[in-house]
Amino acid sequence: MTDPLEWETIDEEVAYSCPGFDVIHETVRLPDGAETDFDYASEPPAVVILPFVSEDEIVLIEEWRQAVKRVNRGLPAGSMEPGEDRETAARRELEEETGYEAGRVEFLTSVEPANGLLDARHHYFVAFDCEPTGERELDFNESIRVDTAGWEALRESVATGEVEDGRTALGVLHYDAFGP
């Protein structure tokens, strides 16, 4: 049985496609029978990594974010490749963006970060015993600096709003509240 809140998709097409996501245009029927248009961004699943070098030191990235026109300080993250499992993607993204390899990786949680606007699903991992390898492999459109911070300093940056990145705030707060 369907939920009485469910919308019926009558028609669907890719309205726009670019590296990283598509914009999907749908014609839908609402529960009251009215028809309307609905557009959303569609992107592949992604991983977000909270990488610990030691018990108190975290690897962070500083990355230019064109949408907000500033450098964003946060956790390494990226899209999963087709057919790639979550842990493999987390290890790959960590190394590609930071040059660090994880000794051990543990799943933390999965969330839909903005399911009113996009179909994204983010899988969070905690990486332990991270060591620098120097083997970064940035995508063509990534401008990233690597840095480290103490765990308490990162928590404080989230608490004060200095860290504005939602993925980072969620990862730090979830780990702080529930652990791995």
Score class of each variant (00 low, 15 high):
Leu108Asn: 05
Pro76Tyr: 02
Leu30Ser: 09
Ile61Cys: 00
Leu60Cys: 13
Gly74Pro: 01
Val59Phe: 00
Val111Ala: 11
Glu57Cys: 00
Val28Gln: 03
Leu94His: 05
Val68Pro: 01
Asp56Lys: 04
Trp64Ile: 10
Ala102Tyr: 01
Leu108Asp: 13
Gly116Pro: 02
Thr36Val: 12
Ala90Trp: 00
Val47Ala: 09
Arg92Pro: 12
Gly116Ile: 13
Ala89Pro: 03
Thr109Ser: 09
Pro51Trp: 01
Glu87Asp: 12
Val111Pro: 00
Glu96Met: 08
Leu117Asp: 13
Thr36Phe: 04
Glu81Ser: 12
Tyr124Phe: 15
Arg121His: 08
Arg121Trp: 03
Glu63Met: 14
Glu35Leu: 10
Glu26His: 12
Val71Ala: 04
Thr27Leu: 15
Thr109Leu: 02
Leu118Asp: 12
Val111Phe: 07
Glu81Leu: 15
Ala77Phe: 11
Leu118Pro: 02
Ala120Glu: 13
Arg29His: 01
Ile49Pro: 00
Tyr40Phe: 15
Ile49Ala: 00
Glu84Pro: 03
Ala46Asp: 04
Asn115Tyr: 10
Glu93Arg: 14
Glu84Arg: 04
Glu93Ser: 03
Gly99Arg: 06
Lys69Met: 15
Arg121Tyr: 03
Ala89Ile: 11
Arg65Cys: 05
Thr36His: 07
Arg73Ser: 06
Ile58Ala: 02
Glu106Gln: 14
Arg91Lys: 14
Arg92Ala: 11
Glu62Gln: 10
Asn115Thr: 02
